[in-house]
Amino acid sequence: MRGRSALPATTVFLLAATALGPAACAGADTDPPPAPAGLTAQAGSAGSVHVMWDPAAERDGVTGYQVLQGGKPVRDLPGDKHMTDVTGLAPQTHYAFTVRARDAAGNLSPAAVTAEVTTPPVRADDRRAPTAPARAAGSPAGPRSVRLSWSEATDDTGVTAYDVYQGGVRIHTAAATETGTRLTGLRPDTVYTFTVRARDGADNSSPDGPPVEITTAPADGEGPPTVPGDFTATASPGAVELGWIPPDTGHEVREYELHVDGRPTTVIQFAPGAVPGGRAAHRLTVAEPAGTVWHLKIRARLPDGTWGSFSAERRVELAR
């Protein structure tokens, strides 16, 4: 895509960076990381279980996870993942899952406390999805967590789980008996948009419930908020119009990084002396087919050269 703006702005495309491996250690590392905490296992259907645990602390140096079913490894995941779906299971069957963390030296942690679950029975020829949760609400629970709640959904064969999505990606699964949860591992001073879907035993998912925007609290010592305010994205034929209120950092904010579907795509730059004093605007010219769905968010480059917190995320469907 190409960027155009009524204001003097240019668009700079980002190049993929090569990841650097860990530096060589002076001596062999033989200390394993601690066992993962907060392990849960939730049956999402008659043949699948969603396994989830708390992210490791950065100081633990975790680079990967090993998921075990009945004591046998069934999944290997990178260190930035803390959930997975185990599929191909039998209905009405009891399963036990645990997880071990792995560090860069290959040391494996002790196993997490085992999570046990029983899959529900098969519902033959069930093709009807549950209704979407009609209501949802949320509130911050500190700099790195939020509380989210929703109303019960209905289904002709019964709801088996609720899935929480953020940016079109499932980040949490709750039991059918739950109508609320606490989400952790978030960034301070950041706007998050969550939706909830109900799921039945045949893996039919409902439409999204109403979106809930929650801003996490700033962390101590971080200074004023850095979130671009009132971010909007509106599709028109061949273009997407962006608008936002620059954060008040005490200096001109000339650069913004645009993320599409969770990936950095462009840097929007305003020329010196042309930085908007009020609401900023930018026009993206797009070549993707009509009906393509994007999830967009932006963040500002701060006076110290670092990136600030993300704006609210907006879903937009490209126009015909």
Score class of each variant (00 low, 15 high):
residue 79 G to T: 05
residue 82 H to Q: 12
residue 265 T to S: 13
residue 93 T to I: 07
residue 139 S to A: 08
residue 24 A to S: 11
residue 68 L to P: 06
residue 249 T to A: 03
residue 320 R to I: 06
residue 230 D to V: 11
residue 151 S to I: 03
residue 215 T to C: 10
residue 143 P to F: 09
residue 81 K to T: 12
residue 207 P to H: 09
residue 266 T to R: 12
residue 277 G to I: 02
residue 172 H to W: 13
residue 286 V to A: 03
residue 320 R to Y: 10
residue 13 F to P: 04
residue 132 A to Q: 01
residue 58 E to P: 13
residue 247 P to M: 01
residue 15 L to S: 15
residue 236 S to M: 08
residue 31 D to F: 08
residue 135 R to I: 00
residue 93 T to C: 08
residue 170 R to S: 07
residue 279 R to G: 01
residue 83 M to S: 13
residue 191 V to P: 04
residue 21 G to D: 05
residue 13 F to M: 13
residue 158 G to S: 02
residue 313 E to Q: 14
residue 183 L to I: 14
residue 270 F to W: 14
residue 52 M to G: 13
residue 60 D to G: 01
residue 57 A to M: 10
residue 69 Q to S: 15
residue 56 A to E: 03
residue 223 G to M: 10
residue 183 L to K: 08
residue 76 D to Q: 12
residue 294 W to E: 02
residue 15 L to M: 12
residue 7 L to Q: 14
residue 117 V to Q: 04
residue 36 P to L: 02
residue 57 A to I: 01
residue 61 G to E: 05
residue 247 P to W: 01
residue 84 T to V: 15
residue 232 T to K: 10
residue 268 I to A: 00
residue 241 E to F: 10
residue 42 Q to M: 13
residue 75 R to M: 12
residue 150 W to P: 08
residue 180 G to T: 02
residue 157 T to R: 14
residue 305 G to Y: 11
residue 225 P to G: 00
residue 222 E to W: 14
residue 207 P to I: 04
residue 183 L to Q: 06
residue 244 W to C: 01
residue 37 A to K: 15
residue 210 P to S: 02
residue 97 F to P: 07
residue 89 L to K: 07
residue 219 A to H: 14
residue 247 P to T: 00
residue 319 A to L: 11
residue 210 P to A: 01
residue 157 T to M: 05
residue 111 A to C: 09
residue 98 T to I: 06
residue 291 G to F: 05
residue 167 G to S: 02
residue 268 I to P: 02
residue 72 K to F: 08
residue 158 G to I: 03
residue 122 V to F: 09
residue 51 V to R: 03
residue 25 C to I: 07
residue 186 L to Q: 03
residue 175 A to D: 15
residue 16 A to S: 15
residue 144 R to Y: 11
residue 3 G to P: 11
residue 151 S to P: 05
residue 2 R to K: 13
residue 251 H to Q: 15
residue 91 P to G: 02
residue 221 G to M: 13
residue 238 G to A: 00
residue 41 A to E: 08
residue 48 S to R: 15
residue 223 G to D: 07
residue 184 T to V: 05
residue 214 I to H: 08
residue 38 G to N: 04
residue 213 E to Y: 09
residue 253 V to R: 03
residue 137 A to N: 12
residue 227 V to P: 06
residue 204 N to D: 02
residue 98 T to V: 03
residue 265 T to A: 15
residue 259 H to K: 14
residue 171 I to T: 10
residue 269 Q to N: 07
residue 273 G to F: 08
residue 177 T to A: 12
residue 287 A to T: 15
residue 308 G to Y: 14
residue 308 G to Q: 12
residue 311 S to H: 08
residue 28 A to Q: 13
residue 26 A to I: 10
residue 153 A to V: 04
residue 306 T to S: 15
residue 120 P to A: 00
residue 272 P to W: 03
residue 294 W to T: 01
residue 218 P to T: 00
residue 179 T to M: 09
residue 162 Y to W: 09
residue 277 G to V: 12
residue 5 S to T: 05
residue 264 P to G: 00
residue 238 G to E: 00
residue 216 T to S: 01
residue 255 E to N: 12
residue 8 P to E: 00
residue 23 A to N: 13
